[in-house]
Design a binder for these strands. Structure first.
Length: 459
DNA sequence: TCATATT
């Protein structure tokens, strides 16, 4: 039914309203289709905007790729259709070898001669430092997996080259994904130089610090920072700055304070908390339970909503005086606990059991655009921010339809920007007003309306 | 620095 060397194609940039039956006519013209499947979310069944396509004949796939890939744009899409071998087809990485333990003086040609006996070589490159000196390793790409395998079998460990400290290494080169993984492991090991407990302690200190602010503690916090990881230090120092700036623990500091984030009244002064020792706090709701409404904080219904417009956290509370200073401090801390540890990956709160108790917010749906004017673009996100932290951060401003951090697929690293979509433009505006310029670590968020689809198109 | 999605 299908050729042995058939290629499974990945089809990207297809409108989410097109199903298999709609797609078929587009692709049939290049040959008989063996299988065509729209990719859907495993749990929600949601159309992911892409598909897999296998033709019976390899040649059909090649023709379709040539004719369609990046060649036309389907209605409603802002980028051209993608037609290329699926990742599962192993983009030719299975014929590329990494060669280690070469001598420093070996040139491309020397390596090539060594590998020539095993097949036709497409590519042969010794890796070099910027100054041109060999790194003692190379990539060699054969035309087929079998040839590469033959070279491994014969050459790996077979000899020790002059100047090398160990016998020759010949193995398949890392795939793009493996490289990403490796990079992440390196980052992780960097952080692990400091004991894992140090990180948690840092989070804990910062937390208690923010709840109960005393000058002495602020000083010790900075002193302690010297022993924390760079990330924890940034977080700690940042929090300390915040505490100094604003006794109520609110961490938003817009560059242009269009809407100042301050307590609404001088008569009810939050700094009362300054002298309060660390008490038995109501358990923080942590990341997953983060809510702009303080009712969730102490388990009691609040008589008034603290956020009246998503910006003035304390605006409504002065009249009844229902919240004691500690509760105020705590309500303010929701910002801290939500944004801070999350921002730095320090999500293990001082009360980790809370995490297991509070069920994670329902699985965030695929990225979706809201109506025009409801979608915001956020740049300068902390590297550690994921969809969920982004969601938490913007939840106070309205119904979030979607929160998506962009991730480099090869490395799994955040690209430090993302989108949040609300169900109405007012929420989006409120979020922009409140969060544009929001300082996290050394950076300030840039929050603005997402560029409309047709922007930047000359015609 | 503006929705790239891989059963």
């Amino acid at each position: 039914m299908k050729e042995a060397d058939a290629i499974k194609l990945f089809i990207g940039q297809i409108p989410r309203n097109l199903e298999e039956k709609d797609l078929k006519p587009i692709f049939e013209q290049f040959g008989k289709i063996y299988e065509l499947t729209v990719i859907k979310d495993k749990y929600t069944g949601m159309h992911k905007g892409c598909a897999f396509l296998t033709y019976c004949a390899r040649e059909s796939a090649l023709k379709a790729q040539t004719a369609l890939h990046e060649q036309k744009t389907l209605p409603g899409m802002n980028r051209p259709i993608q037609v290329k071998p699926a990742d599962s087809e192993g983009r030719g990485e299975d014929r590329k070898l990494f060669v280690g333990m070469l001598g420093k003086q070996q040139e491309d040609d020397d390596v090539r001669k060594m590998f020539e006996p095993f097949g036709r070589i497409d590519e042969c490159t010794v890796l070099r430092a910027p100054d041109g000196t060999s790194k003692g390793c190379a990539f060699v790409k054969f035309q087929s997996h079998a040839e590469a395998q033959a070279a491994i079998n014969s050459l790996h460990g077979s000899r020790t080259l002059p100047g090398a400290s160990s016998s020759l290494v010949v193995k398949f080169a890392d795939t793009e994904k493996e490289r990403g993984l490796r990079r992440m492991q390196q980052v992780a090991s960097q952080l692990a130089v400091f004991s894992p407990m140090t990180l948690n302690l840092g989070a804990y200190n910062a937390y208690t610090q923010a709840v109960s602010i005393t000058l002495v503690q602020q000083q010790t916090l900075v002193a302690q920072s010297a022993y924390l990881s760079p990330i924890a230090t940034v977080a700690a120092v940042q929090m300390q700055q915040m505490a100094a700036l604003n006794g109520n623990g609110i961490i938003a500091t817009p560059i242009t304070p269009i809407t100042p984030i301050t307590p609404s009244s001088g008569t009810n002064t939050p700094p009362a908390i300054a002298a309060t020792p660390v008490p038995a706090l109501p358990p923080p709701v942590g990341i997953s339970g983060y809510s702009p409404v303080p009712a969730a904080a102490n388990g009691q219904p609040a008589s008034e909503t603290i956020y009246t417009n998503g910006i003035h956290p304390y605006q409504a509370q002065s009249s009844a005086g229902v919240l004691d200073p500690l509760q105020q401090a705590y309500a303010g801390m929701q910002h801290y606990t939500a944004a801070y540890p999350a921002a730095y990956g320090l999500v293990s709160t001082p009360f980790p059991q809370q995490h297991t108790l509070v069920p994670q917010q329902q699985q965030q749906q695929q990225q979706r655009e809201g109506p025009e004017g409801c979608n915001i673009f956020i740049y300068h996100l902390p590297q550690e921010f994921t969809d969920s932290e982004l969601l938490q951060m913007f939840l106070p401003f309205g119904n979030v339809i979607s929160a998506k951090v962009f991730v480099d697929r090869a490395t799994n690293q955040s690209k430090c920007f993302g989108f949040v979509s609300f169900d109405n433009p007012t929420s989006a505006q409120t979020a922009i007003q409140a969060m544009n310029g929001f300082q996290i670590g050394m950076k300030r968020l840039k929050v603005q309306l997402k560029r409309p689809k047709d922007a930047n198109r000359p015609y």
